[in-house]
Each structure stands twice: as C-alpha cells, then as structure tokens.
C-alpha cells in the first residue's frame, strides 16, 4: 500500500506543475486564443526562476522572475496573433522553439549550479495524520502544492460564478456579441494570454525550484507543456477536470519510475523489474496515455456537443462579420 501512497504523493507534487500550466492555458483558450507555446514558456520560467534564485539566494524572487519571463514570452504571442492576426498554431510553435532555444542559451552553465535555494515544504498539522489522504495531500508538501489546492476552486468560481468569468466565456464563444456590449475583446484576450504565460512560467519555476529542483536543459519539463495542452482538451475546458487530470498524470510520472523497483505487482512477478529493457515501454506510457485521453476527450466532446470555445483560434476583427 505504501507503494501507491508514494506514487500518489509524488503525483500531487508533479501534478501541481502540470496544474498551473493547464489552468493558464485553459484561461487563454477560454478567451479564444490557443497558445501552443506552453513548453517554451515553462522552460523559460524554469531557467529564469532557477537562475534568479541562484543569483539572489531567494527562491520566491526566483519564482517571481520565472513568472515574469513566462508572461513576457506570452505577450509576444499575444501581439502576433491578436494584433497582427497571424496563425495561432504557427505562432505557438514559434514560441516553443524560441522558448526552448532561449532557455538553453540562458541556462548555459546553470546545470552545475549548487546551493540553489528551493521553495519551502511543510506539513499541515492535523490533516496530515489522516490515513492515506494525509500523506498524499498534506505531508511535507511544497507551499506551491497548497496554492494549487486553492487555485482550482478559485478558477472554477471565477469562470462560472463571476461577471468577469461570464465575459471571459462570451469573448471565447462569440466575441462580436461581447464587443457590442462594450467588452474590450482585444484587451481581455491580451490579459488572458498574459495570465496563461505567467502560469506557465510559474509551472516552470515550480519544477526547477521545488518539485524536481535543478536545471536539466530541455529535460526539465520533458513534454509537460504539451501534456498540459492535451489536458485542457481532455478536461473540456473545465478547471475541476483539468485539476484531476493534472494530478493523475503527475502520478503516472512517478509510477513509471517506481514500477522498475518492485519485484511484484498485484501479486504477480513484475516484468519491468526482471527485464530492464522493458522500461522504455513504461517511459512511453505518459505520452501514449495522452493520446488515449485525447481520443476519449474528443469523442465525449462530439457526443455531448460541448467542446472548444466557438471562437478558439479565430482572430477577432472588429466590424467584420463574426461567427454565424
């Protein structure tokens, strides 16, 4: 049983980084702007946070710098797709390349940095004593993990229960109608893309300063940014589903590691323990599961006729005929 507790406990930590990136992308996509550059923004956030924490000795300043770096990159995307109306897919890919390349250039030599402070971790006094739930959610967790617990309901409340959230949905579904009611579509889209960038930067900083401290070039994120984008689709743009997905995928990450260390699973001999070469199939698992999750998400979206915000990916041009 300890085996599973360990996996889910690590999963909640891993999943927190995914959660930040997923929530940010979810907000941006809800406003109608798809940003495929999450991986690039996360890496920039990770390298900036780590480098700044190394230079200043304060992990919180590092985290802040990482958020700013992610946000700054996202503004580039916002300018190109909102103001210049370029293709969101291509711009997002460009942002990925730019973020990866720039972070590798900036992170040159950072891999050998030592004594970089990390975000403090602590346990919640009473809650951590609850069996199973305590060790998984409340024992020796980074402060950022607890922030994640607050973030999910907050985003849900914002989207579904506030006026600004209503406007957010309107901008993503039918920007012309929103505009006619005096909502500044351009400004809000800029804001949500920026928020998405800040969250991706936070996700990167959470990785390099807390969850798996260090700078390991592009392996710092190893595809987390792309998994976040897939999770948004799987979650059908709903923050609660996004959070569950994030924690599950975080657990999967740890599962693939732990599976190589035990002799028996479910009472049978563990093939991954006896044949080391099979580990590559374990490593494929998160990516394969992302594809499966996408298939399930897409099918459900078609069946229930819910899905992407109607204006997702379409530049808004004031005065032109909007969506039918």
């Amino acid at each position: 049983m300890n085996f599973w507790v360990n996996i889910f406990s690590a999963g909640v930590s891993n999943g927190t980084a995914l959660l930040f990136a997923t929530m940010g992308e979810l907000l941006a996509e809800r406003s109608g702007v798809m940003n495929l550059g999450v991986e690039g923004m996360m890496l920039m956030g990770a390298v900036t946070a780590y480098g700044t924490a190394y230079a200043t000795g304060d992990p919180w300043i590092g985290l802040l710098a990482g958020m700013i770096a992610g946000g700054a990159l996202s503004l580039l995307h916002a300018f190109v797709v909102i103001t210049l109306r370029a293709d969101q897919v291509v711009s997002g890919l460009a942002l990925t390349f730019l973020g990866i390349g720039l972070s590798l250039v900036l992170g040159e030599g950072l891999a050998s940095a030592t004594g970089v402070p990390t975000i403090p971790a602590f346990s919640i006094p009473v809650l951590s004593q609850i069996p199973f739930v305590g060790p998984i959610f409340f024992e020796n967790k980074s402060a950022l993990v607890y922030f994640g617990y607050i973030l999910t309901p907050a985003v849900w409340f914002y989207i579904y229960r506030t006026r600004a959230g209503l406007h957010l949905r309107a901008i993503g579904e039918y920007p012309a109608a929103a505009d006619s009611l005096g909502i500044n579509v351009y400004a809000w889209r800029y804001l949500y893309v920026f928020v998405g960038g800040i969250m991706a930067g936070l996700a990167g900083g959470a990785l390099s300063l807390s969850i798996s401290p260090g700078w390991f070039s592009e392996f710092t994120t190893s595809g987390f940014g792309w998994i976040a984008i897939a999770l948004v689709i799987f979650a059908q743009w709903d923050p609660v589903r996004a959070a569950i997905g994030s924690y599950l995928f975080g657990s999967l990450r740890r599962f693939t590691l732990d599976m190589q260390g035990v002799q028996q699973v479910f009472g049978v001999a563990n093939p991954f323990f006896y044949d080391r070469n099979l580990q590559f199939f374990l490593e494929m698992l998160p990516y394969a599961l992302t594809v499966i999750v996408l298939i399930v998400g897409s099918r459900a979206a078609i069946r229930k006729r819910i899905g992407a915000p109607a204006a997702l990916g379409i530049p808004y041009v004031r005065g032109e005929r909007g969506l039918s």
């Binding site: 210049l84 390349g101 590798l104 250039v105 992170g107 040159e108």
Partner: peptide, 20 residues
C-alpha cells in the same frame, strides 16, 4: 559553437519574425 541552444534559438526567432 557554444552556447549549444544557439541554432534552436535562431530558428525560433526566425519563425517569429517571419510570421510577423
């Protein structure tokens, strides 16, 4: 040439100036 990410960085910047 160091830094090693240089080629990728140039590619990213280029794609951006291009679509802009």
């Amino acid at each position: 040439i160091q830094p090693s990410g240089l080629a990728r960085m140039i590619q990213g910047i280029l794609l951006f100036t291009l679509i802009s």
